[in-house]
Write a protein that binds this DNA or RNA. Structure first.
Lengths: 216, 216
DNA sequence: GTTAGCCAACCCAACGGTAGGTAGAATTAT
DNA sequence: ATAATTCTACCTACCGTTGGGTTGGCTAAC
């Protein structure tokens, strides 16, 4: 596998059209959906003929898979860096949240397509390899949560449910964020760190239910 | 508009096939996606001819729209009931979370299709009317959050960001919940009430950052 | 004189939707 | 009571279009 097609710069006279192809495909898949985007649409956006696209790729599915894999690889790379860092679990969680939000916001097309369009039906044979990456990320997130709970710095809640809440909160960003909008990734992440780690309830307000009182 | 096609029982000898049609369509749209599901697929699942479907509906889009509207109407109906109830904002939030999770879990096909497949491109002209329902629900959620913040029972955080976190956490359920699985809607909601209202950080643990210390 | 990059023309399966029909139940007219 | 009509719930056969993908080249640069 060649180096990432979606990373910023490249070697001197690298293949420009191929990179443009993937970029345009991601944009159109995000705007219209994978199935509703035709190869003709992509060709038009590139200003070339449809047949020319097949000089660079074998099938339409390959485009989708490459996009989804790129997104998941970014997430896993950052995640594993953070998980391995010498930080207390609470800080790892903060960092993970920040990196996740930052990645989504600065690669919105990639992540939107990866999260919304990459389904077993659309992905065909490539489904499993990309899902393996997703699973690695989920495992890593849960490991951080578990570590925090064991060290007593995080409350003892269902690890999976907390993990899904994290992922839902963060991944849902693709549904409302506006790249040209007012909220920066840092603002978003900061508010959610606060919310996720402290909750919404006011510090002094209401009778706090003890963590385990519910299990009766 | 006739009474809900997706509500449980009906008049004596109501049209069975029509209700089956919508149910099957929702199931297939969820499993394969809207675009990847052909009218032939639906006909096969019903055991009738493709043309017969057009006795009940005008276009494929109408199926999608009806499904999406049904889901949003359930959400809004429950939401407005809760918003109007004589409860403190914190309890309203709890109730809203519970009702939202319960609705998703017991109408998984409807909500999955509504959240994943109902896009401007797929919905055509019907987009706006259904989005209006979604907006009503979001407005209602934010009003509860605002009320809580004004009364001092919820922390002063960005209302939109907290709302999106709520919606993301809850709506993401469609991505992982297993109707035959171990987690009941009540368990899920209970864990998230805890998480959303209290946060994950242990009560005694770590140096709590004062709510507004970050704004410098 | 090879090859990277691209193109015009075509293939054909599958799509949403339509035309027009029919068996039988239900309703109305005589 | 029965004959005529209408309606329900489907059917077979087809249409025009679009889809992903292929074939067989051309051309400019090295």
């Amino acid at each position: 596998m060649e180096p990432h097609l979606f990373s910023p710069a490249r070697n001197p006279s690298d293949n420009v059209t191929k990179r443009e192809l993937y970029r345009v495909a991601a944009r159109l898949f995000k705007e219209k959906g994978y199935r509703a985007t035709s190869m003709q649409d992509i060709a038009n956006a590139l200003g070339i003929q449809k047949a020319s696209i097949y000089y660079y790729i074998r099938t339409k599915q390959d485009l989708l898979t490459a996009i989804a894999r790129a997104a998941m690889e970014m997430l896993v790379a950052e995640g594993e860096r953070i998980a391995a860092a010498p930080l207390p679990p609470e800080e790892k969680l903060r960092e993970l949240l920040r990196s996740h939000v930052r990645l989504i916001c600065s690669n919105l097309d990639l992540f939107t397509v990866s999260l919304r369009e990459f389904t077993p039906v659309n992905a065909g044979d490539h489904w499993r390899e990309v899902v393996a990456l997703r699973d690695r990320y989920e495992a890593l997130l849960r490991a951080i949560l578990r570590e925090g709970m064991e060290k007593g710095v995080l409350r003892r809640l269902d690890e999976k449910l907390v993990g899904f809440a994290f992922l839902g909160m963060v991944n849902w960003t693709i549904r409302w964020v506006d790249p040209a909008g007012e909220k920066s990734p840092e603002e978003i992440a900061a508010a959610w760190e606060d919310l996720f780690l402290h909750g919404v309830r006011a510090e002094g307000g209401g009778a706090a239910v003890p963590p385990n009182a519910r299990n009766g």
